[in-house]
Amino acid sequence: MLIPHPLLGPRDAQEFTYLGDASLLNRPDPDAPNALEAFCDYVFLRDNPAGVHCELWFHEQGDRSWLVVTRNTLTHEILDVELATDVARRGT
């Protein structure tokens, strides 16, 4: 797979380390009354969709940026790539 890095252009997926679902950006509030349950779900449960999936890739052997890659898990087609900092700042 080639990942079209927003700053560096197309890069081999081998340069990246995979973390998983991009919803991991949305860490639960540790002070909420249901924090224990929320963190348990956050750590262990995943949507794991067959189709479009937003996921976190770390450019470990490149510029060490975190990316949010939108990819189809049925075809491996990459639909969109953004810097994770942009996604986190936007709050989605």
Binding site: G20, D21, D41, F44, L45, R46, D47, N48, A50, T73
Partner: peptide, 18 residues
């Protein structure tokens, strides 16, 4: 292999990735 897909029909999220 398809557990998450099938169990999504029962509104369950599973502790796994495919």
């Amino acid at each position: 292999g398809s557990s998450s897909r099938v169990m999504a029909a029962a509104e369950m999220r599973l502790p796994m990735e495919s």
